[in-house]
Design a protein around this nucleic acid. Structure first.
Lengths: 216, 216
DNA sequence: TTAATTATGGGGGTTTACCCGAAGTTTTAT
DNA sequence: ATAAAACTTCGGGTAAACCCCCATAATTAA
């Protein structure tokens, strides 16, 4: 008997998976989670063999959840599921302890096979995912450039500075408002220019606006 | 009896919906399509009352499919389904004849209600989608009001310079590309700063983007 | 036909932004 | 536990942006 927790915020999708799993006598769906934190919560007080984990969970990223599971519930296997066959997603969650990765357009038979394989301690990747990984390994340069240009993570200070730049404050004004030196602000802007691959502050603000980075 | 065609390339998702619809006596799933062209093909030789149409279909976009249905199968209702609560998706497919729009994290009850409502000839939008549309309309009104009442007219040259500033070119580069002097470009920028009431180029670009001034 | 705006440019100056480097701290990975 | 990477913090120097003064021809509006 394999105890399974389904973690996905798309109701219909969860229904679909559950209807498939229900027909298998050795599978038992012990719970459903619709966000990251509730997965952690559920694992604390329930016996779970395998988590079907959506990579794009609200609240807490699927990758964070996976890291947490790998740290505190080493006996729980993770089978990652995602809409997207993105090399960055795949490699990142695999680096954080997921044992398998399948796409949401996977068929019934492959889903069952993937669950049995991962529950048994082995790894499973669907064909498309395998291709993506291989492709990523082959031209690492392109992949890293892609993921780096796609969405680099900005530090807390960098985001603060970026927002103030977008509000047309000068470097000195930003420095005063953050109680740091003018030179420090310039350093943060320099990091931003490098990370976002912009030539000047205009580029920073354009990219920030295009990615809705000026809200949170 | 409502004859339903499910058009979505995510197997598990289709399974989920079918398992929900099967329990309703007045629903009948007449077919499944995994891409756009096969939807059109199916409609040509089958009697269908309603299509559950994924907006992001492979091969042929959901919007294209919807346009086609609206043109050649006026009796067939379309209920759009999507992962994404994107204002652009919603408004575009609604403009092409879809009668409803729900998200994939919609629950069982709401799905059934949406199908019945749309099959009955009315419109249905889930709460989140309604909010998104309203927000889009409000922004539009805000933007148009802004541009009509408060937005000063920019001359042809000023718009050209503004676009080049937004593309991160330096003053000298802009001057070279327009075959005018550096001083002239600075003069135009100065006018822009004054007209748009901005403190620097960052403000110019922010205002330009907020008013969709960087297209035409 | 005036008057206003636009497009073009110059001189000269102040402020700001950007580049190179670097040290101490914190976080992450092995 | 230890090494590597990233973050935060600055200084010095140069290129660019921004500001104020001004001026002339062309276009547009009143």
């Amino acid at each position: 008997m394999i105890n399974i927790l389904i973690a996905d915020d798309h109701t219909m999708f969860v229904d679909g998976m559950e209807s498939i799993l229900k027909s298998e006598p050795d599978f038992f769906v012990v719970g459903r989670s619709y966000d990251g934190p509730s997965v952690i919560e559920f694992l604390a007080s329930n016996s779970v063999d395998l988590v079907l984990l959506d990579v794009n969970l609200p609240g807490m990223n699927g990758i964070e959840v996976c890291k947490e599971i790998n740290a505190n519930h080493t006996d729980v296997k993770v089978l990652a599921i995602s809409m997207f066959n993105e090399e960055s997603f795949v490699s990142e969650i695999l680096n954080h302890g997921a044992k398998g990765y399948i796409l949401k357009n996977t068929g019934r038979d492959e889903l069952l096979k993937a669950i049995r394989t991962v529950a048994n301690g082995e790894s499973y990747f669907s064909k498309d995912v395998t291709e993506t990984i291989m492709k990523g390994l082959m031209n690492q340069r392109k992949a890293s450039a892609k993921s780096a240009a796609f969405f680099p993570k900005l530090s807390r200070r960098e985001k603060e500075v970026l927002k103030l730049i977008a509000q047309e404050f000068t470097t000195q004004e930003i420095a005063d408002s953050l109680f740091i030196s003018l030179k420090t602000v310039e350093s943060h802007r320099s990091s931003l220019l490098s990370k976002l691959n912009a030539r000047n502050s205009v580029g920073l603000v354009r990219i920030a606006m295009e990615n809705n980075l000026l809200e949170g």
